[in-house]
Design a protein around this nucleic acid. Structure first.
Lengths: 141, 141
DNA sequence: TTGATTTGTAATAAACTAAGTTACAAACAA
DNA sequence: TTGTTTGTAACTTAGTTTATTACAAATCAA
C-alpha cells in the first residue's frame, strides 16, 4: 500500500465538493465515500487548501467547499497540488563521476524527467473538474 | 530510497553497452559506473533480456551486449521493459460503492491513467538509445 | 577433467514511503 | 459554556526498493 494514490483521492474529494456546490462538506463524510480515515482526508484537504483549490472552516458548522468554480479547476492543478513523485526517479546514489557516462547521464535524465512532467501536465490540462464530474455523473467511461 | 530508479539505471546500463558495441560487458564493471551492487545490475539486465534488448552469456568469458543497434532501441521500450509504476496510483481501498461518485470514479481514473501512460510513451518514443548516447558523449544537455 | 570466472537467482536485511490510527489543541456556532 | 469540526503531531502498520550475501549453473582455458 506504498503506492501514492493521493491524486486519485484528491480528484475524488474535489468531485464530492463540486457536487455539493456552496454547501460545506465534512471530512468525515468524504472519508466514507473514499473509504479511508477522516484524518487522511483532512491532510489532503490541507494541501488543496494551500493550493487555493478549497476553503475550509473549523468549528461546529465547519467543513470544506471549493474555492473556485469546477470549470476553472484543471486536473493539472490538482496533480501539482498533491506533490506526487515524478514518472521515474533519478539515481539513488550518484554515479561514478570518473566515468564519462556516469558523469553526464544525470543531467540528461533530469531534462528528460522535466519533459515528461510537462507532457503529463499538458494531458491533465485537457480536463477540468467539471468535465470529470460530468463523466462520473453520467456513468460514462 | 524507496523511489523507483530502475528506468534511470536501465538507461545508464544500456548506454554503457552501446558504447562497448559488440564487446561483452561484465555486470561488475557496469555496477562501478552506476555506483551500485552488481546483483542489482544483473537483476536489471534480466528484465532487459526478457524484453529482448540485451543478450547475456554466463561463464568465464561471459557478459552482456546489446541485442540490437542503439538506433533501433527507443526509451519507450526501455521504460516498458523495467516495469515502473504509473504516474499515479488508483485508490488503495475500493471506494464506497453505494455512493454514486465512489461507484464510478475508479473507471474514470483508470482511463485517465492509461491516457497519461500513452503520453509518456509517445514522449519517450522520440528518443533512441543512440540519441541519448550522443547527448551524453557530447556533454550536451 | 579441473579450476577459475561470470551470470542467474534466492533469501534476507535495511531504508524509505504511504496510509491508518489515536489524541488533542484551536476555532467556532448555538 | 458546550458540542462539533478542523488542523496537526505522533506513532503504527504495511508495502516497495535497493543492498548484500550466498550459491548453483554455465562456460572456457589449461
Amino acid at each position: 500500500m506504498a503506492a501514492n494514490s493521493q491524486f486519485s483521492m484528491a480528484v475524488h474529494v474535489l468531485v464530492m465538493l463540486a457536487k455539493s456546490g456552496e454547501e460545506k462538506v465534512k471530512s468525515e463524510y468524504v472519508a466514507g465515500s473514499v473509504n479511508t480515515n477522516a484524518v487522511v482526508i483532512r491532510r489532503l484537504l490541507g494541501q488543496l487548501s494551500q493550493a487555493n483549490l478549497v476553503i475550509s472552516q473549523t468549528g461546529a458548522t465547519g467543513g470544506t467547499r471549493l474555492a473556485r468554480c469546477p470549470k476553472e479547476i484543471t486536473l493539472a492543478e490538482i496533480f501539482k497540488a498533491v506533490s506526487c513523485g515524478e514518472a521515474f526517479a533519478l539515481h539513488g546514489k550518484t554515479p561514478d563521476q570518473d566515468c564519462p557516462i556516469g558523469k553526464n547521464i544525470e543531467a540528461v535524465l533530469c531534462r528528460l524527467q522535466k519533459e515528461i512532467d510537462k507532457s503529463i501536465g499538458e494531458k491533465l490540462s485537457q480536463y477540468t473538474l467539471q468535465s470529470v464530474f460530468e463523466m462520473i455523473e453520467q456513468g460514462k467511461v
